[in-house]
Simulated assay, not measured.
Amino acid sequence: MTTPRKISSNAARRSEASRRAILTAAFDLVHEVGYAKLSIEGIAARAGVGKQTIYRWWPSKGTVLFDAFLMLSDEPDGEAALPDTGDLEADLKTVLRATVAELNDPRYDEPLRALNTEIAHDPELAAAYVERLDGPMKELKKQRLRGAQRAGQLAKDLDLDVAVEMLWGPLLNRWLQRSGPLTPEYADTIVETALNGLLPRR
């Protein structure tokens, strides 16, 4: 009675080991050779699996890369939250500075750019990105802003979706277009401009 369960358990472990090997191989290879030269064949060879093993789980190299990024960006404890010290400006600066550091990390730059390119051309991947990564992350950001609203630090009728775009959009735009340096000081300026507004103070 126990033999089938053992076989099933061993197969599941082998399957998960293969999956992680594939995702790690995809992430490493795109950094080494670039997305244009990344191939299912190359990923399979690096991971030590057959091409059909990859195609059984993913329809394209873009979807493999997306899952690879998700695997490496998972929180160790399974939870994530923006800091809430009671000082909204300081907390937002901390988060945007961390975003700057990640975007400037050479290990993440090429995979992230490749992923953004694929999202722009693949509606199914774009939908998966919104559902599995962008949507949940946006909700975490909005939760922090809701806390600031409850504390009287932000207007109660503030459009939180627009607020999130105002805070994180400039960073992503500058990174994607390579239109200027991404620095902690630039992150601070975004926060200060968003919170203090564009109109002169009375």
Rank of each mutant, 00 (worst) to 15 (best):
R5N: 12
K6F: 05
I7C: 04
I7Q: 14
S8Y: 10
S8F: 11
A12Y: 12
A17W: 08
S18I: 06
S18L: 06
R19Y: 14
R19D: 12
I22K: 02
L23C: 12
T24Y: 01
A25R: 09
F27V: 01
L29A: 04
V30C: 09
H31Y: 09
E32R: 07
G34N: 09
Y35A: 14
Y35M: 01
Y35S: 11
K37E: 11
L38A: 08
I40M: 12
A44T: 00
R46Y: 10
A47V: 14
K51G: 02
Y55S: 02
R56Q: 05
W57K: 12
K61Y: 05
K61E: 00
V64G: 05
F66S: 02
F66V: 00
A68Y: 01
L70H: 06
M71W: 12
E75H: 14
P76A: 07
A81I: 01
A81N: 03
A81F: 04
L82T: 00
P83N: 14
G86T: 03
D87N: 06
D87Q: 04
E89D: 12
A90P: 00
T94M: 05
V100E: 03
A101I: 10
E102I: 06
N104Y: 03
R107T: 09
Y108K: 13
Y108F: 13
D109P: 06
P111S: 10
